[in-house]
């Protein structure tokens, strides 16, 4: 293990630049630990986001040595052998300051994809029984553990090229809801993901599934949406 890390951290907004810091190495030190050390010991004005530190909240994603990662679960020793680290804000999102991005566009696209639950029952109705082995439930379960970290959104070249594209996270969430028998917004959702920039804009590069920290496969979810939407279109169910 290196005795210290040479760390380049992005400072400023989109017109900023990398600034170099030297950080002592520790056992089991995460990239988030390194960023925190810089803020606490060198420059308290360094801006970045984190909350849970255990890979649940999805707020600490950054670009580490060119790849989007959840920094709280990324050991520095696993991503560099030379002791050099370059830490930048996520790609494909506007930089507010340093390592903090503006996530508005990311979440606006969730809404645009109708990636929200449309309830059909009230608290006075009985709970819908859903068997774990039900094929729709199995399909939903495969994509349900998304923590909204935007790593997939940052990794996606189609997002970089097509500003209208809804992105892997929103479409993955839409697919889990397509497979939710309790949901009453199926037609609206299929319409939403069938528009320009919807699921059909995906080129299946699979960067989303390569970088997803929770090993989800949004490409597979998007393929499911493409198939379901095309079937509905050919049957004349979408207007």
């Amino acid at each position: 293990m290196a005795e210290e890390y040479e760390v380049s951290i992005w400072r400023g907004d989109a017109t900023g630049s990398f600034v170099d810091y030297t950080v002592p190495a520790r056992a089991s030190q995460t990239v988030l630990d390194i960023v925190t050390w810089v803020q606490r010991h060198i420059d308290p004005s360094l801006s970045y986001r984190f909350a849970c530190r255990v890979g649940m909240c999805g707020s600490c994603a950054m670009n580490v040595n060119g790849a989007p990662r959840w920094t709280c679960r990324t050991h520095a020793s696993k991503v560099t052998s030379s002791g050099k680290l370059q830490i930048a804000p996520l790609r494909n999102l506007p930089v507010i300051k340093d390592l903090a991005c503006d996530m508005s566009e990311f979440f606006d696209k969730w809404k645009k994809a109708e990636a929200r639950f449309h309830p059909t029952l009230t608290r006075h109705d009985k709970m819908e029984p859903i068997l774990p082995a039900n094929p729709a439930r199995v399909a939903a379960s495969a994509g349900i553990e998304c923590i909204n970290c935007a790593v997939c959104y940052s990794a996606c070249d189609t997002v970089a090229w097509n500003t209208e594209y809804l992105g892997p996270a929103a479409l993955n969430r839409a697919w889990t809801l397509v497979n939710d028998v309790r949901d009453g917004g199926q037609k609206e959702r299929l319409q939403a993901v069938s528009a320009d920039g919807g699921c059909h804009a995906c080129h299946s590069h699979q960067s989303c599934q390569a970088y997803c920290p929770n090993q989800l496969n949004p490409t597979a979810s998007i393929a499911g949406l493409k198939k379901r939407a095309m079937g509905a279109y050919l049957k004349g169910e979408l207007k």
């Binding site: 319409q191 069938s194 320009d196 059909h200 095309m230 279109y233 050919l234």
Partner: peptide
């Protein structure tokens, strides 16, 4: 352009 242009163009390209 309709709101279904994504699925419409996709379908025509596959067909």
């Amino acid at each position: 352009m309709t709101s279904l242009s994504g699925v419409r163009l996709y379908t025509w390209q596959r067909l």
